[in-house]
């Protein structure tokens, strides 16, 4: 009787078995990596209606974050500054700049500028800026070095695992209170020592890792 299949097919089942296992593992791995916030969300840089430059204001002029984001120390939200905050200075400085046209219109028409939100956590996540600032977590820990961003982009994944990594081991992200808004601060050699002292000072054991810490 003639053979139905050529000889090489004798080994085919083995190869198919090995290949399918590999394909499943590799596809899973790829999806797991590429569909994660680390890959999808980091680098999100929407075009803002007004070409506001954090680099100029924070990096070159050395303005403090809290000058505009006034809520950050006291409330869950840092607050996007209202038009008035811009005009406090730009009444005088570059009052006729073409770039500020929308801001001036906003002031005249009493309509807010439609800024595009960059850092957004899902509705079921309750993040509180003040809680992080008061214990000495710097702005740059989550937002990256804003002082070098011409247009702000998302620098960190803001995923649950990323949050948990810090909540489980926050020591590297605690800094002296006067360095909170410092964009270029790097942990010193004795960071562990400092963190221990800081935690004792504030009487904090560990940040919450309970579900209701963030989800409620």
């Amino acid at each position: 009787m003639a053979q139905i299949f050529p000889k090489w097919t004798n080994k085919a089942p083995l190869y198919v078995a090995i290949a399918s296992v590999l394909i499943i593992i590799i596809t899973g791995g790829l999806i797991n990596y590429y569909a994660s916030p680390l890959n999808i969300d980091v680098g999100y840089r929407p075009i803002q209606p007004v070409p506001y430059s954090h680099k100029v204001h924070v990096g070159d002029l050395g303005m403090d974050c809290r000058f505009c984001h006034t809520g950050v120390e006291y409330s869950p939200v840092a607050m996007i500054p209202p038009t008035k905050t811009c005009m406090n200075c730009h009444n005088m400085i570059k009052a006729d700049s073409e770039n500020l046209k929308l801001i001036r219109e906003s002031q005249q028409n009493k309509t807010p500028v439609q800024w595009v939100r960059v850092h957004k956590s899902p509705d079921y996540v309750y993040f509180d800026h003040s809680a992080h600032i008061t214990v000495g977590v710097g702005c740059a820990s989550c937002h990256g070095n804003i002082s070098e961003m011409e247009v702000v982009f998302q620098a960190k994944p803001l995923s649950m695992g990323w949050c948990l990594n810090c909540h489980r081991n926050p020591d590297d992200h605690l800094r002296p209170f006067d360095k909170i808004t410092n964009m270029t601060w790097t942990p010193p050699a004795n960071q562990a020592e400092f963190a221990a002292k800081q935690k004792a000072l504030l009487d904090i054991k560990a940040p919450t890792t309970d579900c209701t810490g963030c989800h409620r």
Binding site: S159, M160, L164
Partner: peptide, 8 residues
């Protein structure tokens, strides 16, 4: 039990 970004 799939490894995931939520670490859960």
């Amino acid at each position: 039990p799939i490894p995931n970004q939520m670490l859960i």
